[in-house]
Nucleic acid binder design. Structure first.
Length: 479
DNA sequence: TGAAATGTTGGGGCG
DNA sequence: ACGCCCCAACATTTC
């Protein structure tokens, strides 16, 4: 079959040229119209948050440069814009890589059926962001897995191996349309407060496709060798830091998986691979249970006695709870658009269990603040912490932020970086300044309640309160 | 991918 | 040498 003369390549969560199946197909046409549409209208509540928009701005800038300035940008409903472009510019084919958010599935399904009925238009979709399609993996009885380990071990690892990444095309004959918006017109960077400037200055992200590959290679050369232990220490650089790149598709999970797989088999490598498995599991859950971001996965949580308190929520968001490990994490999030995974679990447990605030509030805040905000991972992870999710943490697992700090940040390096008002506290008290005697506090220039808050809750009491609240879901009746 | 309470063991001090 | 107490250190159970 001869290829149509003009093809649209619709970029979505695949902002890359390497290992991009839709791109490889589109360039079989003489002319490719590369396209990105900022579709807040269809996204509704889940339109991109502030930090994600900053990342997106730079990712699009990089992609546009790679395409010699030929990336076409639009804003609005993709299902309006695309049919318009198809007829306006005599397009013969459209290619895109699949997404899995429920709102995108709905939009794309409708759009695809509308376009398919267009005379002479070829519409093709591809897999570019998951190692295993959610519909490929099922239990023997045909129903979806609800537990990670069998999903991953029996379901994924026994299915076909992940695909080898495809090469970057040599030559892309891209066309810039006159009606394309400029990147600036998308207004992805906030103007005030000048938050995106602090956010960028405080970390050293290279938000580009090359940056993604550099980070992968650096991780494979260094961090992965101590991944299994090191990944728990927030002051160490033992995590890959690939999550935002994977979210925006600046690197494919296939590239990451295959590169890691080629290392010598050991526990560090396999643990890292299994984290890619968790990413798959989150998408799998979201695909099979599309209400995951809104409803408790386990219905017995519907009667949970949340005690949402605005003041406590605000203190948590601002990193002013008076609990150093929690505050350090929340400030890292606000200042850098990122939070170390170990700390995400600690601040999540604190919000949900010590403060008894609904997991949805945590989800919303992370959605707005994280560079790697991802509907699937965010929803699955918050429900995991709450205990309401699939294969979730048991209700009685309540992190003690002091113990966690002493275990995983024994020298207080992480605290000192993000909670500088405690930087002169001795290690012994840096995770629990309220236990220090007066002279220790004075020597460290800390005045509790003035220079640093007193804890908003007593850890022991609030733990007890959580255990009582969780009595409601203790019985495993009514799933 | 916890933490706290409770139980057990074993060594040292001491009458 | 023996019994007793104390209390780490570890193990088990419970939430």
């Amino acid at each position: 079959m001869s290829s149509p003369k003009k093809s649209i390549l619709w970029f979505r969560q695949d902002l890359r040229l390497i290992d991009n199946p839709a791109l490889l197909k589109a360039i079989e046409s003489e002319e490719v119209i590369p396209l990105y549409i900022l579709d807040d209208d269809n996204a509704g509540k889940w339109k991109m948050g502030g930090a994600s928009r900053v990342w997106l701005h730079h990712a699009l800038d990089d992609l546009n440069k790679q395409l010699d300035g030929k990336l076409n940008l639009y804003q609005g409903k993709a299902d309006d814009i695309i049919p318009h472009l198809v007829s306006e510019y005599d397009v013969g084919a459209i290619h895109w890589n699949r997404c899995y958010e429920p709102w995108r599935i709905n939009r794309d399904t409708g759009l695809k059926s509308a376009l398919t009925s267009t005379e002479g238009l070829l519409v093709k979709t591809y897999n570019a962001s998951l190692l295993w399609e959610p519909w490929e993996i099922a239990k023997k009885d045909g129903t979806p897995y609800r537990v990670f380990t069998p999903y991953y071990r029996k379901g994924c690892l026994n299915a076909h191996p992940p695909a080898e990444p495809k090469p970057k095309p040599n030559n892309i004959n891209a066309t810039k349309l006159p009606c394309s918006l400029t990147l600036e017109a998308l207004s992805l960077l906030p103007t005030k407060p000048a938050w995106h400037q602090t956010i960028m200055s405080l970390d050293d992200w290279d938000i580009s496709e090359q940056g993604a590959h550099d980070r992968l290679n650096d991780f494979l050369d260094n961090g992965i060798n101590s991944y299994r232990q090191g990944r728990d220490f927030p002051a160490m650089k033992s995590v890959s830091g690939l999550s935002p790149y994977l979210h925006f598709g600046q690197i494919s999970p296939h590239t990451v998986w295959q590169a890691a797989s080629k290392l010598e088999a050991d526990k560090n490598r396999d643990h890292f691979l299994s984290e890619l498995g968790w990413r798959e599991f989150s998408y799998y859950l979201l695909y099979h249970f599309p209400t995951l971001p809104h409803d408790n996965f386990q219905a017995k949580f519907n009667d949970f006695p949340w005690q949402d308190d605005d003041g406590w929520l605000r203190a948590w968001q601002q990193g002013k709870t008076g609990v150093p490990m929690v505050d350090a994490g929340m400030r890292q999030l606000w200042q850098t658009g990122y939070m170390h995974n170990r700390v995400r679990m600690i601040v999540g447990s604190f919000l949900i269990k010590n403060l008894l605030i609904n997991w949805r509030h945590g989800q919303d805040w992370f959605w707005d603040c994280l560079f790697d905000a991802d509907l699937a991972s965010n929803a699955a992870s918050w429900q995991w912490v709450a205990g309401s999710g699939a294969d979730a943490a048991p209700y009685f697992r309540i992190f003690n932020p002091v113990t966690q700090g002493q275990k995983f940040d024994p020298n207080g390096d992480y605290i000192r970086q993000y909670v500088p008002e405690l930087k002169d506290m001795p290690n012994k008290y840096i995770h629990c300044p309220w236990e220090a005697d007066f002279s220790t506090l004075r020597e460290a220039n800390v005045m509790l309640g003035k220079t640093y808050p007193s804890p908003i809750v007593d850890l022991k009491e609030s733990r007890q309160r959580a255990l009582e609240a969780y009595q409601v879901v203790k019985s495993d009746s009514a799933a």
